Simulated assay, not measured.
Amino acid sequence: MDVTPLIPEGRQLIEAYGDGAFRITGERYAGPVIVFPEETLDWNPAEVADLTLADFVPVTGREPAPEILLFGTGARTEFVLPSLRASIREKGPVVDIMDTGAACRTYNVLLAEGRRVAAALLPVD
């Protein structure tokens, strides 16, 4: 029995991460990215401790807004200010913060389920 999730053609599947980069649907991206089901964007955020709502405009300004934003903070989970999470939530998506590996895996599962998901990912060296 094949248990591989079926991903519709043209969707952005996170295939690998590490060495400061990601491989998403066969393409290599160096540095931080934001992944949506339809496209992947290069991302230039502030340091985690200095993040503001402006860093997440590519997600919060999207119509329709994703239901869920997975924020991969690198090799380990680093939390953001509750006020930032609340500000993002006011714009639409629920924010789930985790290490980048967990965010990549969770994104792929939610993508396979057909959810409106986005992943803002900091690379792992």
Rank of each mutant, 00 (worst) to 15 (best):
R11V: 00
G114F: 07
V117E: 11
N44H: 15
A103K: 03
R116C: 03
A21S: 11
E9P: 08
A86P: 00
I88Y: 02
D55W: 09
T52H: 11
G26T: 03
V117Y: 10
T100S: 13
L41V: 02
D99C: 04
G101D: 04
A30D: 15
T40F: 10
F56V: 06
E47D: 15
D125V: 04
E39N: 12
E47M: 14
V33W: 10
P5T: 07
V57S: 14
L81H: 13
T25W: 00
R85M: 05
V95I: 12
I7T: 05
A16T: 02
Y17P: 00
A103M: 03
T4P: 01
T77Q: 15
A75Y: 08
E9M: 11
E63L: 14
Q12V: 00
F36N: 13
A112T: 05
L51F: 07
F71P: 01
A102G: 08
R23E: 07
T77R: 15
A103H: 04
M98E: 01
T73H: 11
E27I: 06
A21I: 00
P8W: 05
I14K: 03
E15G: 01
R11K: 12
E47H: 15
L81T: 06
V3A: 12
V57M: 13
T106A: 13
C104E: 05
G114H: 07
A65I: 05
Q12F: 01
D125Y: 06
D96M: 05
D19Q: 08
R115L: 10
A120N: 07
V80N: 03
I97M: 06
L81K: 15
V48K: 14
E90F: 02
D55T: 07
R89V: 01
T60H: 03
W43C: 08
V57P: 02
N108M: 07
R85Q: 09
L111G: 07
T60M: 12
D99E: 10
E67K: 13
E78Q: 15
T73L: 10
L51C: 09
T25Y: 03
P58V: 10
P32N: 12
A75T: 12
I88A: 01
V59K: 10
T106V: 05
T25I: 01
G92T: 03
G74C: 11
R116T: 04
D19H: 04
G26R: 04
F36K: 14
R105F: 04
V80A: 10
V35T: 13
L84C: 00
R76S: 15
G61N: 14
L51S: 06
E39V: 10
A21H: 02
L121M: 10
Y17A: 01
V59G: 06
Y29H: 14
L122K: 09
L53Q: 13
G26L: 07
E63W: 09
C104L: 07
D125L: 11
T25G: 06
G31F: 03
P8S: 13
F22M: 00
A46S: 13
A112M: 12
G31P: 02
A65L: 11
G72H: 08
E15H: 01
I88H: 00
G61Y: 06
L53W: 11
V3P: 00
L6R: 12
G101H: 02
V35F: 13
